[in-house]
């Protein structure tokens, strides 16, 4: 059994190792290692299209994750105080946001936005006093909104799990000691749920940064890093793409490890040590 488990770990890591190895290949070959070099990293990061796609992805991931962290946490706190029926409605909708395949979310958002824009744009053009009326279209905002939906559901789920594991007793103790509701929230609840909010933010960031299929539908003429990588792969495997892929792997590795550390840490620490 040990041997089998070892093989599974090999299976999980060998392909990744291969991509990383060939990103340092001196030659153009994708199958023959001809010497160590970081030239492809230099080439990748001086490619303006690629750098633009990367900065788009970072901006979209940061915006959608921040949005999801704030609104998702607020929703998690509110859901705890709701009646059973309302709670079930929100639980169902958030579950749908997670379970419905990304390809369907992408399509549905595309269809809805196209329909809304086709009604809205002529109306605005009709009432706009100036020369060139603003035109709504697909772009950064639509990607951020669509990613925000999934991410909000994830943040709400994680924060709610954390709230459920908190005892009511310290909140009651705080109330008994004449803390204002806001004081209790800021000094007792918020510090306790902060690690899970941050973990949710990081997971949301990772999701958005790695997502291809939703962005593919709602990006309009904009490019994110996964869209750029996908288009490059279709043109053929090059060491430059290996260098980009390695960078993406390292970035998501750092984010996910940070998220895991945050979610572990406070679990074992006794209450009130902050």
């Amino acid at each position: 059994m040990r041997a089998l488990v070892f093989l599974v770990y090999l299976f999980l890591y060998a392909p990744i190792a291969l991509v990383v190895l060939f990103s340092f290949n001196a030659g153009r070959s994708a199958s023959e290692f001809t010497g160590f070099s970081v030239a492809w990293y230099g080439k990748a990061f001086s490619n303006t299209f690629l750098v633009q796609a990367l900065s788009n992805s970072l901006f979209i991931a940061a915006a959608s994750a921040a949005l999801a962290a704030v609104f998702g946490t607020m929703a998690a706190l509110a859901i705890e105080r709701m009646g059973v029926r309302m709670r079930l409605v929100f639980e169902g909708l958030f579950a749908a946001a997670i379970v419905v395949p990304g390809v369907v979310i992408g399509i549905a958002t595309l269809v809805a936005l196209a329909a809304v824009f086709s009604i809205l744009n002529p109306v605005i053009a009709g009432i706009w006093p100036g020369e060139s009326p603003p035109q709504f279209g697909l772009g950064y905002a639509s990607i951020i909104a669509a990613h925000g939906l999934f991410s909000m559901a994830v943040v709400t789920m994680i924060v709610r799990a954390r709230i459920a594991s908190l005892g009511r007793d310290i909140v009651e103790a705080s109330d008994d000691l004449y803390a204002t509701p806001f004081g209790t929230f800021r000094q007792i609840v918020l510090p306790q749920i902060m690690p899970s909010i941050l973990a949710g933010f990081l997971l949301a960031f990772t999701f958005s940064f790695d997502d291809f299929i939703i962005a593919f539908f709602v990006a309009g003429s904009n490019t994110t890093l996964p869209i750029y990588v996908f288009a490059s792969i279709r043109r053929g495997v090059t060491p430059e793409i290996n260098a980009v892929a390695t960078s993406v792997l390292v970035a998501s590795l750092i984010l996910i490890l940070a998220a895991r550390l945050l979610m572990r840490e406070k679990k074992t620490r006794p209450l009130g040590e902050d």
Binding site: Y9, L12, Y13, P15, I16, L18, V19, F22, A30, S31, L203, T206, D210, F212, P226, V229, F230, I233, V237, I241, A245, V248, L249, S252, L253, L255, I256, L257, R260
Partner: peptide, 27 residues
């Protein structure tokens, strides 16, 4: 356990692309 979970959260695009390499004619 961490070593099992971490790959899941890294780009599926990149991980699948690695197999294009391995299963491709030069792999």
């Amino acid at each position: 356990i961490s070593l099992i979970v971490v790959p899941f959260w890294t780009s599926l695009l990149v991980r699948t692309y690695a197999w294009m390499y391995i299963l491709g004619s030069r792999g």
